[in-house]
Amino acid sequence: MDTLKITNLSVSVDDKVIIKDFNLEIKSGEIHVIMGPNGTGKSTLTKVIMGDKNYQVLKGDIKFNDKSIKELTTDERARLGIFLGMQSPLEIEGVTNADFLRTAISTKEQDNFKLFEFIKELDKTVDYLKMNKDMIHRGLNQGFSGGERKKNEILQMYMLKPKCILLDEIDSGLDVDSLKIVGNAVMDYYKEYNASILVITHYQRLLNYIKPTHVHVMNNGTIVKSGGAELVKEIEQNGYVKNNKKVESLGTCVVKEMVSHE
């Protein structure tokens, strides 16, 4: 059982506090979805979990399997089995997808890395995600469409086999067919590896494929409401404004309760 636990986390960037007293616990076999208006700190949260140096942790802790990862570097966190599927995957000139993946997997597997197995699995996953085979030999995300980039993130996820997956707006830039492929691929992975998954999204459409066990609404850097899948429908009908008004005081209570449990 793998557990990612975030306790009383406050984070700033350029002296502006983005995340305030944030609490969340994700266990293996759970899919948590965080929704919320733009600029509430959802993407920041995923980057902070991954150890982005641009953000300063003011207080609180992030633990993976009861060990604090706050002082670990990004690559050390990744090697523990945490994966971030990014909202805007970068284009890196000259570094081919194949070289990038081979380096990442040989770093993870050290002496157990087998090139033939790697190529076989890569081919299989490329087919499964209905990607063009030549993308593997192109520069990393170079000339990729928005959808191709997102599929490439999922390809990396499959190849690296993480335990805890953070998906930051993985649905943006995807057409209907690609959304289905990506959504189903995430669910298949979840079922096969019993992973813990945190999904950041704005839209219900992704959740037609990825079935959450927990849904949270985030506003002003903290969770203001938590619930099950039914919360997504409520947000879809009423929007965040009405939802926030309705739950503002409740939201504070939820956070306080979680803190008092600590």
């Binding site: 690559d75 990744a78 690296l160």
Partner: peptide, 15 residues
């Protein structure tokens, strides 16, 4: 670019 380094690090690749 720091972001390039972060992207590669986030896949477990050391500095």
């Amino acid at each position: 670019d720091d972001n390039e380094m972060f992207y590669l690090n986030s896949r477990g690749i050391s500095e």
